[in-house]
Design a protein around this nucleic acid. Structure first.
Lengths: 291, 291
DNA sequence: TAAAAAATGTTCGTTTCTGATCGTTTCGCG
DNA sequence: CGCGAAACGATCAGAAACGAACATTTTTTA
């Protein structure tokens, strides 16, 4: 028996030989490889069901259950992982529940330094003993952290993360609006949230947005959030927009509010000239953290 | 056919030869080795789930649970700590202090074993595809963890911890009632909570209580919570009380409900004779976890 | 019915994980 | 404060799992 290295060489030779002799075959091969043909096996739905029930599946267990070889199960799991329905691990697969939280944590890190600066500047402008609303968003979460040393605040929020952050502080009364919980960012929206907001009048509201257009319009990705933001603005005396400069370059589909509604913008870099002009017209104060 | 060991030896020889001949390659190799590649183990998600449920995990306990060596568990915990999902302590790991209230964590440990059993029994009796309410309480939180693998649930809760626990699961819609946030246990009460509850009709409600009197009256420490519980009972078809046996010996001032209102009690030890008699009268089913 | 395609089984080299060992650090107790 | 025990981290060999290529079986389709 020849050593393996010789075998490998031989295999390589054979392959290249085939390619040379029958190029059409080689082409077919590569084509088939490129086509991501997903196999429709009877096992897949059942595998997912088992994974949902148990939180995980093992190759070994599925081999026994379906009475097929491990290789077949691996193929199934690999494809389920490719399509994002499961997460592959050594020896099996698990539900991909963790991925959501990780995504949010990473997003939270983005522009972290700028956000902290913005949050600090924003918190400094909020006095003690008043009623504040904090909206969804990573920047508003940063504001919550900076508010921890204020006194006599009543903070209302529709962000479950903010609720947790502020629950550490005895000096602050926290009210949660309630509503449909959004996994991606811990936000609560919907009719319940709006109804709760309508029962208050806020001295200060701190809101974020997904994007800020040149003409000063606040835009967002989520329609649900729009109606909540509108309710907030309606019931607040002073509205502060916290937005790091990355928001100037982004686009988002849903109109939330115009600059008329905003009392103060806190940001880290020079806003676009058009937007600044608009702020002058509407009397919106611009606060830069870099001062 | 050469034995595998011979093959491996040959490979090793080749590698070390390469290392001698081209030292720069050896350096590359070692660099690559230093890169922390995270292992994809099937245990990690389960470890996190256990940590969320119990507030902590021990190396010893996990060794027994997974039937692997302490070294392997340590590796898992180290990596979970590196990625920030747990916090490493001597002998095990705990939830990161940011996610959960510290004093509350300790209370969560109390009667943990009984609570998990009760939660499991309770979750087993809740079908898929229905509307469920989960009230304040450490035992109801344990129920939430056990519900993670249900499908098609709408869960409404006035407990911010439960909202966080369930937000990990894509299969479950979570609605938060909102209300005044209580620092001590993450509960939300008050008019907002009650109003939200009134907008639903629940197939199942899971509630806890601070104490259970001999005559079957459910008692609580907090007046605020009483009106919320009343609203829950009013709007639920099936009400399950989860109460570990320590509740039988406690006293609490506020009357929440009588046994008439409860469909099922899930508990770990024999309820007092008087109470049992009362359950027979009211038709309340008693489920013991020790069965 | 035969060819083609898909699914499954088989083999083999490679990667990754696990358990064992050893030296070091931390914890608990006197 | 010091000591012993337990827990810890690094390292390495062996084992298990893995993926790629190929062979075989089953299903589809022309």
């Amino acid at each position: 028996m020849p050593p393996v290295s010789a075998l490998q060489r031989k295999l390589v030779e054979n392959r290249s030989l085939a390619a040379v002799t029958f190029p059409q075959i080689a082409i077919k091969r590569s084509k088939r490889k490129k086509e991501r043909c997903l196999r429709l096996t009877i096992r897949k739905p059942e595998i997912i069901a088992i994974a949902r029930r148990d939180g995980k599946v093992t190759v070994e267990g599925l081999v026994e259950y379906f009475n097929v070889t491990p290789q077949t199960i691996r193929r199934d799991l690999t494809e389920l992982a490719d399509s994002g329905e499961l997460e592959r691990v050594h020896g099996g697969a698990v539900l991909p529940s963790t991925t959501v939280n990780i995504g949010y944590n990473e997003r939270r890190m983005l522009h972290q330094a700028a956000k902290v600066d913005i949050a600090r500047a924003c918190a400094k402008r909020i006095p003690n003993d008043c009623a504040v609303f904090l909206n969804i968003g990573t920047t508003t979460e940063a504001v919550a952290t900076e508010l921890l040393h204020h006194e006599g605040l009543l903070v209302v929020t529709n962000n479950v993360n903010i609720a947790i952050i502020l629950s550490a502080c005895k000096q602050i009364d926290v009210v949660v609006t309630g509503g449909q919980l959004r996994r991606s960012d811990g936000g609560m929206t919907g009719a319940i949230a709006q109804n709760s907001i309508r029962q208050f009048r806020f001295d200060h509201a701190v809101i974020g947005c997904s994007a800020l257009r040149q003409n000063g319009d606040l835009m967002d990705f989520d329609m649900q959030e729009v109606s909540v933001s509108k309710a907030i603005i309606e019931h607040s005396e002073h509205v502060t927009l916290v937005a790091d400069s990355s928001k100037f370059e982004r686009k988002a589909p849903a109109f939330v509010a115009s600059m008329h509604d905003i009392s103060t913008i806190v940001t880290d870099k020079k806003v676009p000239a058009d937007c600044e002009t608009f702020c002058n017209v509407t009397g919106t104060e611009i606060v830069y953290t870099t001062d």
